[in-house]
């Protein structure tokens, strides 16, 4: 069994991002980068499958040379090897899905595990698009994944109003939701070992793909900030204000 799992390099999700004063982008100075949190969950799931069923786990990322670090953290968690598709261009989900499709055709995995959404662009698109262009089934927002004989996956999906249970024939694309698992911390030996694991680098320009953007980001703005209101002294004051001032009860 072979699993391809994605590791996007994103700005630290716990830092409040600010827009550059000229609106040309976000201010990245002094900001740390991390593996997209949902991708960490996908990597954890891949490794759990590997521990149970035997599998090779290939960690892939599309981006700048710096994304080597994010692939390494996936390898430190237990991934076997990495692939980095090098580009400095900002790619939209349509383009990333085409790059990933080319990697799938090269690697022939049984399963592609991804995060449901990258917490920078908040698109929530790439996994679904990849599944469609491969003509594979998809199970997005997975909270439980169970493999059956390495040929099928039973997946529970977190959706509005409850849980959706589906069965997929592999190969398939599965995207991880938060409750799929709790990612492990890489151990020190894991980190040491990861340093020797192989990361293949491929120049995007050598892949012969049309990755011209279909979505172009123009201006960035800051959302209207809420003003902090008042601290009220006690519950009766609060309720009176809700009734008489805000008129919401």
């Amino acid at each position: 069994m072979k699993i391809l799992v994605t590791a996007k390099r994103v700005t630290d999700p716990d830092v409040k991002i600010k827009v550059k004063p000229d609106g040309s982008g976000i201010a990245t100075e002094g900001i740390d980068y991390k593996v997209n949190p949902f991708d960490e969950i996908a990597i954890e799931e891949a490794i759990r499958i590997k521990e149970k069923n035997k599998a090779e786990v290939v960690v892939v990322s599309v981006g700048s040379k710096e994304a080597t670090k994010e692939i390494r953290s996936g390898l430190a968690m237990g991934g076997d090897r990495g692939i980095l598709v090098l580009t400095d261009d900002p790619l939209d989900a349509n383009a990333v899905s085409k790059v990933l499709k080319a990697l799938v055709e090269k690697e022939n995995p049984d399963l592609v595990l991804m995060g449901k959404q990258a917490v920078d662009g908040d698109n929530n698109q790439t996994g679904q698009m990849l599944a469609e262009i491969l003509d594979w089934p998809q199970a997005c927002f997975a909270s439980v994944v169970e493999l059956v004989d390495d040929s099928k996956a039973k997946v529970t999906r977190e959706v509005d109003g409850g849980f959706d249970h589906v069965e997929l024939d592999l190969p398939a694309v599965i995207t991880a939701d938060l409750r799929l698992n709790e990612p492990r911390y890489a151990s020190l030996p894991g980190i040491m070992k990861a340093k020797r694991k192989k990361i293949e680098e491929i120049e995007l320009s050598s892949m012969g793909l049309d990755t011209s953007p279909k979505v172009v980001w123009h201006k960035f703005g800051t959302p209207a900030e809420r003003q902090a209101g008042e601290i009220v002294a006690d519950v009766p004051t609060l309720v009176a204000k809700l009734r008489d001032e805000a008129k919401v009860i």
């Binding site: 991002i17 703005g221 800051t222 959302p223």
Partner: peptide
């Protein structure tokens, strides 16, 4: 909204 709503981007679909 992008970046958890901390920025709003104007996106053109071409």
């Amino acid at each position: 909204p992008v970046w958890a709503g901390n920025a709003i981007v104007s996106a053109e679909i071409t």
